[in-house]
Design a protein around this nucleic acid. Structure first.
Lengths: 144, 144
DNA sequence: TATTGTTATACTCTATAACTATA
DNA sequence: TATAGTTATAGAGTATAACAATA
């Protein structure tokens, strides 16, 4: 367990502020596409050649598995997501349709658009920030 | 409008990942205190000597003003928040009670606790990160 | 007449429990 | 017996519209 420095605490506070702004963007973008937050989060987490199951999605969405049925039902009705049989015939594997993928890419494009404060930084600061975030991410998942 | 560099895009992508992790922490901490996400967000945004009105809170919570009545009702019933008359006698000003403030501080303490990836960074990286975030924040609000 | 906050209402989201079909 | 997903259902959250009090 690493020591909690004053720098770490202050940086964490600033990150929370930035993340609240980001949360706002996420909700607004979901609404624009007529997606509930959970539906948008589902698209966000699905890959085109998917391997995610209903239960795994429930874990990611932090909700009961029973809700995932309805969430996926609506996405499937809109032709964005497809359920297919897994090897174990109890499980269902989720994948994106072509429409689902293009909507997901639109969503990603908007959410990954760097916020103003980031664009306002010098190129040098941007590069340094990216390196530090990468190091932090690498430290967090030493094996995965 | 600043140029969107490759570094900025990649950094934005990493920040979105961090947001998702942070969202998880927020929901878990709220649940521990038997607070709905909106109730927790309300405490988070209220100051002890408050000036926030019901409408302003609705804006922050990104929900209809009619919901704020119920959210504040429950917090008031738990003795965490107080409604008082504004100068304009139509508006109600929200402030934290002593209990509300201590609960808010507990919440802040947990959410501002630096995540593992941040603690895993070198002291030098932490300091640099903090400086860059400060510069970004200063650039975002040139006047405020 | 416009605005702040509340109420009434219907719709959606969520969790719990019971059910099915596989294993 | 245990697990993946669904269904039924009740409770909480949400938006819309109508309302009271004040401006």
């Amino acid at each position: 367990m690493a020591k909690v420095t004053k720098e770490a605490r202050e940086a964490a506070a600033l990150l929370v502020e930035l993340l609240l702004a980001q949360k706002r963007r996420f909700q607004l973008n979901a609404r624009e596409q007529a997606l509930s937050p959970q539906q948008a989060a589902t698209l966000w987490n699905l890959e085109p050649g998917g391997t995610l199951t209903m239960n795994a999605l429930a874990e990611i969405l932090m909700c009961d598995a029973s809700n995932v049925t309805g969430i996926v039902d609506k996405l499937e009705a809109r032709g964005l997501v497809r359920r297919s049989q897994g090897e174990d015939r109890r499980v269902k594997v989720l994948s994106l349709t072509a429409d689902g993928e293009s909507l997901r890419e639109a969503l990603r494009g908007r959410l990954l658009e760097p916020p103003e404060w980031l664009l306002g930084l010098s190129r040098e600061d941007q590069r340094t920030l990216l390196e530090i975030l990468r190091r932090g991410r690498a430290a967090e998942e030493p094996s995965a």
